[in-house]
């Protein structure tokens, strides 16, 4: 999933301050799972903003709505009457959702309510970890299913740096060394030889370095 966390409440308040009617629009997929932008978070945020504006003796009308996915036109459709009724949309979707809304409603202000972070998983309740950086050329087969591009702090492809100690990365005692995990796993799989071969410089052209990317499925274009 795409993970995100809500922006600080005062930053959000500043963003919506110029508008009289604001639609807080949640997204029921990724950001719901990471507790940043599902209907529960929409409700809390709406309540907090109302309190905050009341305290400032400012009136603001807040409407709440959560749709299944803000990154797909089919679902965005469901928000259109709510969008029409309001001056601005505070989207709690990921950056893709925010932009999809902006694309669909060209004349409406769409504001981001969350900071979109990474592609990850919920490793244990309440803890989300980054797993993939969408490099466009997956090498997980070589690395025993653990991504060094994302999870090694230095993106090393040819083995651990000199800072790896006791299974931890040099940058932080809470971060496991990806290479330690890779070596452990390849040892278990009996594939440690994968690491003996030299891995040439990565082609980053398929990543964001190559410019904004586009995926084309000819067979689905009508």
């Amino acid at each position: 999933m795409i993970t995100a966390s809500q922006k600080p409440i005062n930053e959000i308040a500043e963003l919506v301050e110029p508008y009289k009617k604001v639609l807080i629009l949640g997204c029921g997929t990724c950001v719901k799972t990471c507790f940043a932008g599902g209907e529960d978070e929409v409700a809390v945020l709406a309540s907090v903003l109302r309190l905050k504006f009341k305290k400032m003796a400012r009136s603001i009308e807040i409407e709440e709505l959560t749709i299944e996915r803000q990154c797909e036109n089919e679902f965005i459709q469901e928000a259109s009457s709510g969008v029409d009724r309001n001056d601005a949309i505070l989207s709690l979707a990921c950056g893709a959702g925010v932009q999809a809304m902006a694309k669909r409603f060209a004349k409406k202000v769409v504001l981001p309510g969350v900071n979109t972070s990474f592609i990850g998983i919920q490793e244990s309740p309440g803890i989300f970890t980054e797993e993939c950086s969408g490099c466009g050329n997956c090498g997980l087969a070589t690395f025993g299913g653990i991504c060094p591009v994302t999870r090694c702090s230095k993106k090393l492809l040819n083995g651990p740096c000199g800072g790896s100690q006791k299974g931890l990365c040099e940058i932080d005692p809470d971060t496991p060394c990806a290479w330690h995990l890779i070596i452990e796993r390849l040892t278990t799989l009996g594939q440690l030889d994968n690491l003996k071969t030299y891995i040439p410089p990565k082609n980053w052209n398929t990543s964001l370095s190559g410019g904004p990317r586009k995926l084309i499925r000819e067979d689905h274009i009508i």
């Binding site: 529960d40 409700a43 809390v44 309540s47 907090v48 109302r50 309190l51 009341k54």
Partner: peptide, 9 residues
Amino acid sequence: DVHLLRAFE
């Protein structure tokens, strides 16, 4: 959380 906040509202 939302119930607590609404109590204040």
